[in-house]
Design a binder for these strands. Sequence first.
DNA 1: CTGATAATAGAACGAACGTTCGTATCGTCA
DNA 2: TGACGATACGAACGTTCGTTCTATTATCAG
Lengths: 194, 194
Amino acid sequence: MGKGEETKQAIVDQALELASTVGLEKLTIGTLAGATGMSKSGLFAHFRSKEQLQLQVLVQARQRFIDIVIAPALKKPRGEARLRAIFETSVKQWEEDLPGGCIFHAVSAELDDRPGPARDYLVDTQRDFADTLRRAAEIAIEEGEFRKGLDLDQFVFELGAITAGYHHSGRLLGDPDAEQRARDMFEGLLARSH
Amino acid sequence: MGKGEETKQAIVDQALELASTVGLEKLTIGTLAGATGMSKSGLFAHFRSKEQLQLQVLVQARQRFIDIVIAPALKKPRGEARLRAIFETSVKQWEEDLPGGCIFHAVSAELDDRPGPARDYLVDTQRDFADTLRRAAEIAIEEGEFRKGLDLDQFVFELGAITAGYHHSGRLLGDPDAEQRARDMFEGLLARSH
DNA sequence: CTGATAATAGAACGAACGTTCGTATCGTCA
DNA sequence: TGACGATACGAACGTTCGTTCTATTATCAG
């Protein structure tokens, strides 16, 4: 990896941390330059537009999510154990990996009414993740862990609701019990799926 | 109501609509002035700071939520029927009252890492609403509709997760089935509470 | 009707933003 | 090591933002 790619990685890593708290739009190029010890113009040259920078942040976030949450879960046994692994690392490692918590939840309200490449990429990321969850649940049915006839889309919706609620309660309201409540809710969902 | 209060109301009403889609920060005074047919300075004089304007938007949102969701529900019978009314109007009327959906969900990610009066007011609003839900569920226990020993805080958490998930799926992902999925999830929660 | 007061407009401000440009410095490989 | 492209910098641009100031118009009680 040449020098260019190296610093570009460092920039995007730093940008990811900032964006998780202040959002993609308020992540300013000047602030980011200060945080990385670079000049505005020197940093800007790596992206050529702020839109590109925002997109790279999401690309990096997706990759990091795969590394932290998805990849380890794929080493677990198929089915329910894999779903448990995804949920558990989502709550424990992923939500605490960045200072603002899960960046997808942090920026989704910001992007949901602003069309563009960033929004498209976020939607694609979320859809892809939803597919992964649906497939994992499907496997759990095949393995006999989940009952036949389980509504997979409803299962995925409820799983998404748990994490959305967890992010909301934990971040805005600062509920210290949010993690355990999300876990209990998840266990309830699994029990109902058997 | 004097002329001043009258136009101020009209301004905040318009601001509420814009803020539900673009957020509190990107709701710009120039844009708002254009939308209301006023000059920037003429509009600004009503608030004296943007922070005050943002706060008034949240105050108005809270009042409107009470008018649309809470007040009608209080006319329903105590207990489960009242909880049903709150949920149903939250999903049907409230989420469609503003172009960007529930403004509290729309701005919570924006405010959760930005301390200040706006954040404080939003948190207070959410806590107050959570108390209302908790009290309604408590009544349902007293009436014998919900089982004794039901974890009220967990109930409120799960209810919040349902609406958070609904907003997320409906807004960002544009899932047309989100409303029905949220309803099904709610019915499941009620059934488990009996 | 009239005068005090409130409400609005217009112009301008300083600051912050994304972006451009010319120049200097650094990394890399012949 | 020398040279050339890649990388970074400083200064400046045009815009947009919230905010202020001053002048003008509308409102409403006496």
